[in-house]
């Protein structure tokens, strides 16, 4: 299952991409097409990775909002493909964390600044693990890691058993309240395969969120990984996340 480099796949891919491009030539704005330099998407030439520069995050929540709008995520505060957490560490006390409405409406300033050591924001998102436990447990093959490294859901095949939600160590999945299937971040697969950035990355005003092709040495994500010391969340679980954090704190889980 790991090695995807076989001929039949390439052939199929060529075909499917042609059909997608034909469709897009009809329905997709030409201006946008020319601008993004779309010249046929090749899955095998991509491996998508994502960086989060915690020191830059201002907690404005524009990423959360853009994600919900782009992907038609249910509005209620129980369903998030990405969200922002605020950490507040006080002297001698346990860390306080909050994420009102996933941070979508921004954060009012901390009322209590007593004994505050530091406070900061941490954006969260599906880690698109190299060894995704959610994919491992899915009984029917309704969630999978795509050849370009994105963990996706097949909503037409998911039986709604929620085992994947239990298996995700990062709380990145939810059950869609209307479709009754698991739902999660797709890196905006509809966008990235057309040469566009994920909605959250595009919406971020401070370049906190970095995205790109790990197979391309000059991609923003590779430059970020080279320039910074990066960490991943819960490395002890062996999931090998592809969301790389810079400036993370010991209290962040």
């Amino acid at each position: 299952m790991a090695d995807m480099n076989n001929l039949s796949r390439r052939e199929f891919l060529g075909l499917s991409l042609k059909s997608i491009m034909a469709l897009m030539a009809l329905g997709f704005p030409k201006k946008l097409l020319a601008m993004t330099g779309l010249d046929g998407y090749k899955m095998e030439e991509h491996l998508w990775g994502y960086g989060i520069d915690v020191d830059k995050c201002i907690g404005c929540g524009r990423c959360v909002d853009a994600c919900k709008v782009e992907n038609n995520v249910p509005d209620e505060p129980f369903f998030f493909r990405t969200w922002v957490e605020r950490y507040a560490e006080r002297k001698g006390e346990k860390v306080e964390v909050d994420s009102p409405n996933g941070g979508r409406d921004g954060f009012p300033d901390l009322k209590n600044k007593k004994e505050l050591v530091k406070s900061f924001f941490v954006p969260k998102i599906c880690n698109h693990c190299e060894h995704p436990p959610c994919v491992q447990v899915c009984p029917v093959g309704a969630t999978y890691k795509s050849p370009d490294g994105v963990v996706l859901v097949d909503p037409g095949y998911c039986i709604g058993c929620r085992y994947c939600i239990q298996a995700c160590p990062y709380g990145a999945r939810y059950l869609h309240p209307k479709k009754h299937v698991a739902d999660k971040c797709t890196f905006c697969y509809q966008r990235i395969t057309k040469g566009l950035e994920p909605a959250c990355v595009q919406a971020c005003p401070t370049k906190t969120r970095i995205f790109g092709n790990l197979k391309d040495g000059n991609s923003p994500i590779n430059k970020f990984i080279k320039a910074k010391k990066v960490l991943v969340l819960k490395p002890d679980l062996g999931t090998r996340p592809k969301i790389f954090y810079s400036g993370i704190d010991k209290e962040v889980r």
Partner: peptide, 26 residues
């Protein structure tokens, strides 16, 4: 009880037809 809690019980047969060998549930 398993069937009743599924989001899509009508798709339950998939567990038998395309079982994922490394899934304990399958």
């Amino acid at each position: 009880p398993l069937l009743a809690h599924l989001g899509h019980p009508e798709r339950a047969f998939e567990i038998f037809f395309t079982p994922k060998l490394d899934s304990a549930m399958a």
